[in-house]
Design a protein around this nucleic acid. Sequence first.
DNA 1: GCTTACGGTAAGTTATGGCTTACAAAATAG
DNA 2: CTATTTTGTAAGCCATAACTTACCGTAAGC
Lengths: 105, 105
Amino acid sequence: MAYKIALAALADPTRRAVFERLREGPMGVGEIAAELPVSRPAVSQHLKVLKDAGLVADEARGTARIYRIHADGLRELRDWLDGFWDDALANFKAHAERDAEGDEQ
Amino acid sequence: MAYKIALAALADPTRRAVFERLREGPMGVGEIAAELPVSRPAVSQHLKVLKDAGLVADEARGTARIYRIHADGLRELRDWLDGFWDDALANFKAHAERDAEGDEQ
DNA sequence: GCTTACGGTAAGTTATGGCTTACAAAATAG
DNA sequence: CTATTTTGTAAGCCATAACTTACCGTAAGC
């Protein structure tokens, strides 16, 4: 069910840039915003969405708030995608076999 | 690069419903729209987006046009997601080790 | 030939959401 | 205790995009 929220969260380019920034490791909000073409509040709003999607986790560190990539949201997205992957392969196989049958007739 | 388009395509609930409808197998536009709460032109527009994302493929069948799930878009999305998955695990592991170090001091 | 069925496209409307500026809250420094 | 740093939140603006109705093209059937 949460894969829907994760998909919506990762669809926005800026939000995806925030997410990819955390690939380098955990860091604070200002640090993320420093190399992005949007304001710090915008980054804060994006992080809220990513957190609700289970894609990032945060931790208080003094007055700062350190964000890092969280695996839960990624797992839900991966599981949903794998289901489609299997269906797509089965679908392709069935389609190929149906075509082969048609050729024989 | 195309995973971005695939993400944006699958973010919309209605478009995802169209896509999931094709899980049952290839079918025409009207057949898809029949059990969805939107008009047939809306479905047609969604299918165009899904096709541009490499998520579906179409085939002329008389006056009808049969759509089916296409594996290419799914593969790009899966590959991108797997990269994040690996990084997230490494990130988690490094974080856990750093915490353990901190406890020993 | 004309009609019917099926689908793509155009134009216009409306709602969603991403961005900015301004402000408030909380923890550290001095 | 005051000032500074860091972040979250509110209000408002504006662009995007999802949907509808209306129309056009195309293939089959009588």
